[in-house]
Design a protein around this nucleic acid. Sequence first.
DNA 1: CCGTATCCTGATAGATACTG
DNA 2: CAGTATCTATCAGGATACGG
Lengths: 169, 169
Amino acid sequence: MTMPAVMEEPLNDLSKWKAEECSVAKAMDIVGTRSAILLLREAYYGTTRFDGFASRVGITEAVAAKQLKRLTEAGLLTKQPYREAGQRTRHEYVLTDMGRDLLPAVLALMQWGDKYLQEAGSPLLLVEDSTGSPVRVEVRSEAGNEVELEQLRVRFNRNWRRPKRRESD
Amino acid sequence: MTMPAVMEEPLNDLSKWKAEECSVAKAMDIVGTRSAILLLREAYYGTTRFDGFASRVGITEAVAAKQLKRLTEAGLLTKQPYREAGQRTRHEYVLTDMGRDLLPAVLALMQWGDKYLQEAGSPLLLVEDSTGSPVRVEVRSEAGNEVELEQLRVRFNRNWRRPKRRESD
DNA sequence: CCGTATCCTGATAGATACTG
DNA sequence: CAGTATCTATCAGGATACGG
């Protein structure tokens, strides 16, 4: 048995490592529901309107409203007013940088689902617009190598300190 | 307003595209809970024993048992018997290829959480073992470019057909 | 077209106690 | 060490109806 990931310090030293401080856990607390991830997928596809989100994700308006509000409050979307000529003011949900930066996670889920959960191949193909070249999500080192689990090493960040509560929180 | 992702055919043509067939939705149906993702994170860290999963993820044994069984039945983990000298037989949960291949998704969540949900920087650093070089999750084309949302184009796969139910399912 | 309000069901998950 | 059993609270999400 080889240890998949080599820890420089054992993670079961829980005095310095609480589960609530894990970035994965924090991320899941915000986008850890099916509807939240699917709404983001729709946003990546270009959807901006409430009705498009609800109908295309296949969830009820009540769920869409609640999750769009959650994602907006969390900072992944902004609600922007706009008006077309002669129409009354409407709103659209636009991705923020924070929302856009979750793209790799959603695409990684899609790529995994394509490989293991589709009997008949990928229903959708992702390509780079300018070259037509297929697109993949990769784990890669700055040295330029693709990194497998066995080559992955996890270190505590010695510069990190437990955040102190601020007034602004 | 630029459309973030350019669709060759509009996705709201729902006659060919049902939400349940989306790979992201299927993936979320299996690993779309906080505890499932956190258990996988622990498996990537090298945890294999029931007790390690429960205690280090910070969930109850009841939840750990249910989710480990779910992940095993879904094919992401296998339950392997083993015995150390003079000890009785025990079991360990080992990642399958299917489970290992979800690593990019979990690392992408970690990377996103590190950037937006940690006030004091990343608690953990990921490096390539052989070079010590920092590791990132990237969206990249086969042509070798990193791909931003604006450069991402989604196409229906014309070779894909709606799966027919098989006896073996 | 863009939501809100209410009610209801099922799943997620915590607490606690107990077994081989 | 590796779970099972029970009981409960909270939350995701569907259905339906209604308001700007």
